[in-house]
Each structure stands twice: as structure tokens, then as C-alpha cells.
């Protein structure tokens, strides 16, 4: 079944294609309106102040424009791809570190993707979003902290006062639930 969310996901895919093929500023503006305020929020939750978060969010969106030809909608949703760009920008800006990435499987520009593959991937991403939203509060909060706060599990333990073992087991339970939901 195709949901409203899947429609939205595939629309973001078309917007990125329009930037790649036609340098389409209107399509970019739509992506910007949706994702830039989320990237800014993500960076502020990771410890950036508003000025730095604003600057980095602009840079992440500029990177999206410049690397639009590298986006592969059979491997990631727009949100996932943008998350990886924002995460790398955060490591660079907040930690002053490089981010070693695995080597690419593909060589050069990917061929035009099969639409069925694109839709299937977008639906899976949507399904995972729903599964995360359905996690018990205590588990979801820790998953969010792990991704958003730039803290290791032991640092989360210090910050929350929860024992390290509790944090590890809640995260493990959350991952089990997500795996189950994706079967």
C-alpha cells in the first residue's frame, strides 16, 4: 500500500533528481523548507549554538545541491541521505575530526534507478519511522540520544544517571523491536 508518507518520500526523490538534472531552484526550495529546520534542530541538540547550527544547516543543504548526482534512491531515502551529510558536517564542525567512510561500491554515476526499487526502499524507510515512533518512550529516548547528542553510551550513563547496563539493554531491546517490525 502506498501511504501519504511514501508519496512525500518519493516527491523528495524527484526534487533531488530535478536539482541534479535541471538545477531546479524551486525543487531545492521545497527540500530546504522541509529539511533545513530539521537539520538545524538536529545540530542544536548535538550541542551546536544557534549560529553554528544555522551555518552548518546551510552548508548541508549546499552539499545536497552539489552532490545531488551521487544520491541513490534505491539505497536511501532523502531523509537518510541528508542525515548522513548532516552527521558528517557535525563531526567536522563540533569535533574537528575527519569521518572515514567505507569505499564506494559504485563507480561513477549510477544508471537510472528502477522505480519499483525506489518505491520499495521509500516504503521501508517509512515503515521504520513508524516502528521508531511506536517504541516505548524509555527506549525511544535513548535511541534519540545516541543519534542526536554525540555521546557514547558511557557518557549517556553519566548524563542521565542510568546504569550503563540499563542503557545497553534498553537500546538492545529497541533494536530487537525494530528488527521485528521490519520482518
Amino acid at each position: 500500500m502506498t501511504t501519504a508518507k511514501d508519496m512525500e518520500n518519493t516527491e523528495w526523490v524527484s526534487c533531488i533528481a530535478a536539482i541534479r538534472d535541471a538545477r531546479d531552484e524551486a525543487a531545492f526550495a521545497r527540500l530546504f523548507g522541509h529539511f533545513a529546520p530539521r537539520i538545524k534542530a538536529f545540530l542544536m541538540r548535538s550541542g551546536a549554538d544557534a549560529t553554528l547550527a544555522e551555518e552548518c544547516a546551510q552548508e548541508v543543504m549546499a552539499t545536497l545541491w552539489q552532490k545531488a548526482h551521487l544520491f541513490d534512491p534505491t539505497r536511501a531515502s532523502a531523509a537518510t541521505w541528508i542525515f548522513t551529510i548532516a552527521r558528517n558536517r557535525r563531526i567536522d564542525a563540533l569535533r574537528k575530526q575527519k569521518r572515514p567512510e567505507p569505499e564506494d561500491l559504485t563507480w561513477g554515476i549510477a544508471p537510472e534507478p528502477d522505480q519499483a526499487d525506489v518505491l520499495a526502499l521509500q516504503q521501508e524507510s517509512d515503515q521504520l519511522s513508524a516502528a521508531i515512533a511506536a517504541l516505548p518512550e524509555k527506549q525511544r529516548v535513548l535511541i534519540e540520544k545516541a543519534y542526536f547528542s554525540d555521546l557514547s553510551h558511557s557518557e549517556i550513563a553519566e548524563q542521565t544517571g542510568l546504569p550503563l547496563g540499563t542503557i545497553k539493554s534498553r537500546i538492545r531491546l529497541a533494536l530487537d523491536r525494530l528488527r521485528h517490525a521490519m520482518k
Binding site: 529539511f35 530539521r38 537539520i39 534542530a41 538536529f42 541538540r45 536511501a76 531515502s77 531523509a79 537518510t80 541521505w81 541528508i82 542525515f83 548522513t84 548532516a86 552527521r87 521501508e124 524507510s125 521504520l128 519511522s129 521508531i132 515512533a133 535511541i143 534519540e144 543519534y147 542526536f148 525494530l178
Partner: peptide, 10 residues
């Protein structure tokens, strides 16, 4: 994808 979903939901 979990990271993407969290970004989408933030």
C-alpha cells in the same frame, strides 16, 4: 535509516 527517520521526526 534509523538516523534518517529520527531526523524526519525531530
Amino acid at each position: 535509516t534509523v538516523g534518517g527517520a529520527l531526523l524526519e521526526g525531530t
